[in-house]
Simulated assay, not measured.
Amino acid sequence: MSHTAHIPSHRKPRRSASKLALRAGVAGGVLSTIAVAGAAGPANAEPVTETIEMPTLGSLDIDLASAVSASAEASQQEALDLSLQAQENAAIEKAAKDAKKAKAEADRKAEAEKAEKARAEARERASRTQARTSLSASSSSSDSGSSSSADSSSQVATGSAAAIVAFARAQIGDAYISGGTGPNSWDCSGLVQAAYRQAGVDLPRISSSQSSMGTSVSLSNLQPGDILYWGSRSGSYHVAIYVGGGKYVGAQNPSTGVVERSLDWDMPSGAVRIL
Rank of each mutant, 00 (worst) to 15 (best):
A5T: 10
H10S: 10
R11N: 05
R15T: 07
L20W: 01
V26A: 05
V36P: 00
V36Q: 04
A40V: 13
A43E: 14
N44A: 12
E46P: 14
P47V: 12
V48N: 01
P55C: 02
S59Y: 09
L64M: 06
S66Q: 13
A67N: 06
V68H: 11
S69A: 15
A70V: 08
A72C: 02
E73S: 11
E73M: 11
S75E: 13
S75T: 12
Q76R: 04
Q76I: 07
Q77I: 07
L80D: 11
A86Q: 13
E88L: 11
E93C: 00
E93D: 14
E93S: 15
K94I: 12
A95Q: 14
K100V: 11
K100E: 15
K101Y: 05
A102M: 08
A102F: 03
A102I: 06
A104Y: 08
K109P: 00
K109G: 08
A110D: 14
K114W: 00
E121W: 06
E124M: 14
R125M: 04
R128D: 10
A131S: 13
R132T: 09
T133I: 02
T133D: 09
L135E: 07
S136D: 14
S141E: 03
S142F: 01
D143N: 13
S144T: 06
S154H: 06
Q155H: 01
S160G: 05
V165K: 02
F167G: 09
A170F: 06
I172W: 04
D174V: 04
Y176N: 05
G179F: 09
T181Y: 06
P183C: 05
N184I: 09
S185Q: 15
D187G: 13
G190Y: 07
G190P: 09
G190A: 11
V192T: 15
V192D: 05
A194C: 00
A195H: 04
V201F: 09
D202Q: 13
L203A: 09
R205W: 06
R205Q: 07
S211N: 05
S211R: 01
S212I: 01
G214H: 01
S218I: 00
S218E: 03
L219M: 12
S220G: 15
N221G: 15
Q223T: 01
P224A: 09
P224F: 07
G225A: 14
G225W: 12
D226G: 04
W230C: 08
R233Y: 02
S236E: 09
G244Y: 02
G245A: 05
Y248A: 07
Y248C: 05
V249K: 03
V249L: 01
G250T: 00
A251D: 05
Q252I: 03
Q252D: 04
N253C: 07
P254M: 04
R261F: 01
R261N: 14
L263S: 05
W265C: 00
D266H: 08
D266W: 05
M267C: 04
P268F: 02
G270Q: 02
L275F: 02
